[in-house]
Simulated scan of single mutants.
Amino acid sequence: MKTVLQLLKEKPESHQAVLTIGPDQSVLDALRLMAQINVGALPVVEQGQVVGVVSERDYARKMVLLGRSSAGTPVRSIMNAPVITVGPGETLERCMNIMTDSHLRHLPVVERGELIGLLSIGDLVKAAIAEQAQLIGQLEQYIRGEH
């Protein structure tokens, strides 16, 4: 199975840059940024370190349902923390296990303390499907004697 770094390199160039939000910025700022770049979550970075992840789900559950104002609430009050991260050498299988076991939809990728990417559960599912399709093709060739 591929590594996290291999998957990050295969992402379209437009999806390789990871935008972040600060913990003291407003939830409204986070929502605007997520809408602008069409993503469901943002890593929360403070002094160069990933300190959490904030998602649309956090907004729905911790803001809307409680009747809180997104303009006056800092991201730190609704972000998921402490954050679970992986390194670039981690396997996608291990990432799937982490995400499943921890009920995560987004997994920041950190190398030497620096955020280098963000994986979504969708990224991992697409990679697993592509890998299985390749394996099926190889097995079909083997069965037909086309080594």
Rank of each mutant, 00 (worst) to 15 (best):
P74M: 09
H15S: 12
M96P: 01
G22F: 10
A81H: 13
Q138P: 04
Q25V: 01
M96G: 04
A60C: 10
I37Y: 15
A41V: 04
K11C: 00
P82F: 10
D24N: 14
D29F: 13
H15A: 14
R61A: 11
H103W: 07
Q47H: 11
Q36S: 13
I84E: 12
L31E: 04
P12E: 14
V83M: 10
V53Y: 06
R57Q: 06
L19C: 11
N97I: 03
C95I: 03
L107Y: 00
A30I: 01
T100P: 03
L115D: 04
G48Q: 08
T100F: 10
I116G: 03
E131T: 00
L5C: 08
V51C: 07
V86H: 01
L92D: 01
Q25W: 13
R144S: 12
K2N: 09
T3H: 08
V4H: 01
K2R: 12
I143V: 15
T100W: 07
S102V: 02
E140N: 11
A30F: 09
N80H: 13
A71I: 02
G117D: 05
K62D: 07
A71E: 15
G89D: 13
G117W: 04
L124G: 00
P108M: 07
R76N: 11
V110W: 06
R57D: 04
Q36V: 05
P23Y: 07
A17P: 05
Q134K: 15
A130W: 04
M79W: 08
L135M: 10
E140H: 07
G22Q: 09
N97G: 13
P74R: 06
L104G: 03
C95L: 02
A133V: 06
I136V: 14
A133M: 14
C95M: 03
Y59K: 00
Q16S: 11
K126H: 11
E111W: 13
V75W: 12
G67Y: 06
Q16W: 14
L107Q: 01
G52S: 08
L31S: 06
S55I: 02
E13G: 12
M79F: 06
M96C: 13
G117Q: 04
P82M: 09
A17C: 10
R144E: 15
E114T: 14
L135V: 11
R57N: 05
N80I: 09
I129G: 03
N80D: 11
E111P: 04
M63Y: 05
E111Y: 12
T85E: 05
S102Y: 12
Q16A: 14
L118G: 00
V18L: 09
N38A: 13
L107P: 02
V51K: 07
E111C: 10
R57P: 01
V75C: 09
A30D: 02
Q47E: 14
Q16L: 12
I84A: 14
R32W: 11
Q47L: 11
G89V: 02
I78V: 15
S70K: 05
V109N: 01
C95G: 01
L104S: 03
N80G: 15
L92A: 00
P43T: 08
V51R: 08
L135S: 07
L28S: 15
R57S: 11
P12L: 14
Q49V: 15
Q138A: 12
